[in-house]
């Protein structure tokens, strides 16, 4: 397909900005919760479109099981190894936990980055 400009990320960014600046302030109280959810959904999409591929993460996961490949390939294999008990010992568990934290922080950076700061332990609603 021809790559028209602005691209998806550019469109989501300007849509979100316009929504926040022009629409959100005038949304009636009864629709405010939904409006905030729209802004939240768009900002997750914006961050996901901006996220760079993560070869280090795939490599870290692959390293745990002696395999290589992209995240979609190695993550299910790691799951199978965990299910099979390959990480039951304290030493192996320690190595695994470190990588699980990296993975979780990378996903949180897209879905809800304000929870990333160590002090920002918050609940959902």
């Amino acid at each position: 397909m021809i790559n028209d400009e602005p691209d998806a990320r550019g469109l989501v960014t300007i849509a979100l900005q316009t929504f926040r600046e022009s629409i959100l302030p005038v949304v009636p109280a009864e629709q405010r919760f939904e409006a905030l959810m729209i802004a939240n959904a768009l900002s997750i999409a914006e961050r996901e479109l901006a996220a760079a591929p993560e070869p280090e993460l795939a490599a870290a996961i692959g390293g745990l099981i002696g395999e290589s490949g992209d995240l979609e390939t190695v993550a299910p294999r790691l799951c199978a190894a965990i299910d099979a008990g390959a990480f039951d010992t304290p030493e192996r568990q320690g190595e695994l936990r470190k990588v699980l934290w990296e993975l979780t922080r990378a996903r949180l950076a897209v879905s809800n980055p304000r929870l990333l700061a160590p002090s920002a332990r918050q609940s959902n609603s």
Binding site: E34, M37, I38, N40, A41, I44, R97, L100, W101, T104, R105, R107, L108, V110, S111, N112, L115, R121, N124
Partner: peptide
């Protein structure tokens, strides 16, 4: 539903709470 959709994307924060608890 946008609410259901966003609930699906709460998984990483639940996982962070899980990892903190296990730590």
């Amino acid at each position: 539903s946008i609410e259901l959709a966003l609930t699906g994307r709460m998984l990483p924060e639940i996982e962070q709470d899980l990892l903190r608890h296990l730590d």
